[in-house]
Write a protein that binds this DNA or RNA. Structure first.
Length: 275
DNA sequence: CGGCAAACCTGCGAGC
DNA sequence: TGCTCGCAGGTTTGCC
């Protein structure tokens, strides 16, 4: 489900609800996700105060007053849902309950159990295996045409697959790769190493724009995704190509949106205007 | 080493 | 109605 815009939206919601709050109770109801919860997860967080919540790539990072950091990932179907009042009885796929000292709570729900929650410390975080190899943040200053070209140099794989590689650029997934390539008029089948110079200079702002617009709309809701506040995302209504197989291209009007499979994932594009 | 398919898990919709 | 198949926003593993 969640790519950068969805995780960013969730983090903003959590920040508003949790920053400055102490965790009065933490309850792990089911620990056997694809990556199991670490031993002592609940105990290590109970009584700790949340000092900040931020995002790196598709990871949530919750910082605590004792230097611990919770590294969270929503996988394909993970949700974080903020509630007030008494915590509800455990629902299906509710894996963790966080109760705060102001009487609120947050539930981590993940139907497919591809998500994860791990613990690390602030001073070792940048060396954590999940974070160490990540590429630049696409909305940050370290992402530009030359940087992207360099990351793609020598890569004999379709640009679609390269952009899904979190070492190239961090936070893109299947939806936003398709939308960004459409905006940059680059075919998803083009070999990655040929995206250099002017093409890379087109792709960088296309990636930035689609992510910023998606964040402004609260992300994209297809099936599982909701914001932490429970609201839906609305960017799915703006898709130019994703999940629009057979529909007319919004840009060139000549072609129909085509669906192909690359690296075992669906790719949507317009063969008439993406080269 | 690079690139790709399969695996992980659950649920839903389409088609027979 | 009910079954099977294919597919889903991600990432890792293992094979060639």
């Amino acid at each position: 489900m969640p790519e950068l815009p969805e995780v960013e939206t969730v983090c903003r919601g959590l920040e508003a609800a949790l920053r400055g709050r102490r965790l009065a109770r933490v309850e792990v109801r089911r620990a056997d996700l694809r990556v199991p919860f670490p031993a002592g997860f609940a105990e290590r967080l109970t009584g700790r105060r949340v000092t900040a919540i931020r995002r790196r790539a598709k990871y949530m990072l919750w910082a605590f007053d004792d230097g611990q950091v919770l590294i969270g990932h929503l996988g394909m179907s993970g949700r974080m849902v903020i509630g007030g009042g008494a915590p509800p009885p455990p629902g299906r796929h509710d894996h963790v309950l966080f109760v705060t000292d102001d009487g609120g709570h947050v539930v981590f729900n993940d139907q497919r159990r591809f998500g994860l929650m791990l613990l690390d410390h602030q001073d070792t975080l940048e060396h954590h295996p999940l974070l160490a190899g990540l590429g630049p943040e696409p909305l940050g200053n370290g992402f530009d045409g030359p940087t992207l070209s360099a990351a793609l140099a020598g890569r004999h794989t379709p640009i679609k697959a390269a952009l899904l590689d979190q070492r190239v650029v961090a936070g893109l997934g299947n939806i936003y790769v398709a939308e960004a390539l459409f905006r940059a008029r680059i075919s998803p089948r083009r070999q990655a190493y040929t995206v250099a110079g002017a093409r890379a200079e087109r792709l960088v702002p296309a990636i930035r724009a689609v992510l910023e617009e998606a964040i402004a709309k609260g992300g994209s809701t297809l099936r599982d995704y909701v914001q932490a506040t429970g609201e839906l995302g609305y960017f799915q209504h703006e898709f130019a190509v994703y999940d629009r197989e057979g529909e007319a291209c919004r840009s060139c009007q000549r072609g129909l949106v085509r669906r192909i499979v690359q690296a075992n994932r669906s790719t949507f594009y317009c063969a008439a205007c993406q080269r």
